[in-house]
Design a protein around this nucleic acid. Structure first.
Lengths: 346, 346
DNA sequence: TGTTAGCACTCTATGTTGTTGAGTGCTAAT
DNA sequence: ATTAGCACTCAACAACATAGAGTGCTAACA
């Protein structure tokens, strides 16, 4: 692959990414002054086509990059595009002013990602590590109603209403809370299941009914692990891409977006322990998405992969830009989350 | 408006709602055996057009109902379609098995609504009435981190992490919680602002830093009123309606769906204190939605309107069905929420 | 007087055909 | 190795023709 061929391929990709129209030899000669005539470029293009880097939609049209072409571009030709000063400032500002809890962080991230790229953003909720029991609190609401609140040590809070037998006063509940807290301090789910449960029951047996509810909630909390949820951003945004001029395309795209499970697999599966991963067209394992490309990367929490973010768009994607954005956003997201959970050390 | 004219209008509406194609006189004569010839029906149709109940898209096409036609249908011709036994059972089962907290109820409702109607569902989150302070709890997390949890008397829970000065033990926090709870019991926001604040500060002055945070959260909680949020369901669902064969239509529709505020106004504004409201086309005040119809109704909590649900679809809508569904769902939703908040009295 | 058959007319949707222009591949000259 | 020239291909577009659905009107009919 000599130098000029690379230049031609680069030109084709850049032009096609920008215009979504097949690129002809004349266009390249004019716009990307390589100092040679269209005829020469035609020869190079014929070669590139033989090697599978570009293809012709039909006989008398220009060329478009093939998946292999994009792959070559991403691996060898592309220069990652860093965010501008302005963009970085904007992002930091958004996080600082508008975000107060973990759900908002995730949502904001997906919004920013799609806004910066014009494609669809996906963010997987973080698995918040350890998740052991921290605190339980029973609060009397109505005469016959109580709320059970469970706090996990990663900062997740669960709560549930429950019916309560008559004749339990608010101070009874306070006592119950205190005893339970003392017993359960720092316990893992195994501890609770194996040993503590019996101990507690024998001690507080008369409040069996409430205990049952409390235990159920604690177990749910421990089991739930903030069940992998995926946030999408800018699905609608992407419809402005010319690949969606056709109603059928829109529908199939939207039906993919509806399949949460598929998208979770996509994100969880594609991104490795570290760094940005790019999957182009058929490189994606999920069959139904083979017309698109994904740029994904994990974000970390306490040094370990906690979740992933990704951008989904047509194979004709601004890879340089998207990769830059995804890279920045994952690092930023890690920081923001870390600060939020560990405390915003001044 | 004589009897036969009504029958013709009814036939036109039913057929057009079913097929989305302009209806001709032949079709009516054949399918809706009125016992007269197409020519007679043509005469009736000419009259109906003069009166503004139907219109012709172009000279040699059949007729389609006008907004006035739909209005007449909804007011005088239509027979509300109750849900089938099967559907009702399905709904009840879904709520019972899958729904454990208030957010899920709302989401499930919008899902079911859109599923049953094939249009887009909108559900406004409930305003949970009073919303006074019920309980506060400080929980020590890390050595320098604490969580503040505030419970409101309508069952809403807010929580926030905060930094904590060194040298405050877990039992200090327990004490703090207890004193605060005692002081604040059942207080409204005014109480807190006017009198209690000073009292508490003078008593617990040395923990000023924590108090500030706690008070901030309480005030936020009182102010937030679970800020009117809207849940949409089945936006994509609706794309299968033939009115969306055109890309532009899809885009404008989706851009409407993105404007949360607009939709909130729509729902909050259109539905009165009680019962199902139907707004057809231009009857909708919001300009940008004038091509659609809305069927909305409020749901109640403790005897007062707490929120609204609605269905948004093309003017060519199955009003009979949709009205039945909306009616049933609001009543059911009221019940489910009531039970959830007041306690699931057996 | 209300109903109906018949018919001319209208207009969209669909298909056909011709034309244009962008772009190629090949060849021969440089 | 590069390039000008040229014949060729094919999608896109426009112009035109055709078919058919549906109407409104008129005149005949019960």
């Amino acid at each position: 692959m000599d130098d000029r061929k690379q230049k031609v391929l680069l030109a084709i990709i850049q032009d096609y990414v920008a215009t979504a129209e097949p690129v002809g030899s004349r266009t390249i000669a004019k716009k990307y002054k390589l100092g040679v005539s269209p005829a020469t470029i035609r020869n190079e293009m014929a070669d590139l086509e033989d090697q599978g880097f570009i293809e012709q939609p039909h006989a008398s049209a220009g060329r478009i990059p093939s998946e292999r072409g994009y792959r070559y571009y991403v691996d060898y030709l592309m220069i990652k595009q860093e965010l501008t000063r302005k963009e970085e400032d904007m992002i930091r500002r958004e996080y600082e002013t508008k975000v107060k809890e973990i759900g908002q962080v995730i949502q904001m991230t997906s919004q920013l990602l799609s806004q910066l790229t014009c494609y669809t953003a996906m963010v997987l909720t973080p698995r918040l590590g350890s998740s052991n029991f921290k605190h339980i609190q029973l609060v009397s609401m109505h005469p016959t109603q109580a709320m059970i609140i469970v706090v996990m040590d990663n900062g997740v809070v669960h709560n549930r209403m429950t019916e309560m037998p008559e004749g339990i006063s608010a101070s009874d509940m306070e006592t119950l809370s205190r005893v339970l807290n003392a017993k359960l301090q720092g316990a893992t789910i195994e501890d609770i299941k194996r040993t503590l449960l019996k101990e507690i029951y024998s001690e507080l047996g008369k409040h069996r009914r409430i205990l049952d509810m409390a235990m159920e909630l604690i177990q749910d909390s421990l089991a739930l692990r903030t069940g992998d949820k995926i946030y999408l951003g800018g699905v609608f945004n992407m419809l402005n891409q010319p690949e969606f001029h056709d109603v059928e395309k829109i529908k199939t795209m939207l039906s993919i977006m509806e399949q949460e499970k598929l998208l979770c697999d996509l994100l969880a599966g594609e991104s490795r322990e570290e760094g940005v991963t790019v999957r182009i067209g058929n490189e994606i394992k999920q069959r139904s998405i083979r017309d698109y490309s994904v740029v994904a990367a994990p974000y970390v929490l306490g040094g370990r992969k906690a979740g992933s973010v990704g951008v989904l768009g047509p194979t004709r994607m601004e890879y340089a830009k998207v990769i830059g954005v995804v890279d920045f956003m994952t690092r930023n997201l890690s920081q923001v989350l870390e600060r939020m959970i560990q405390g915003r050390g001044k």
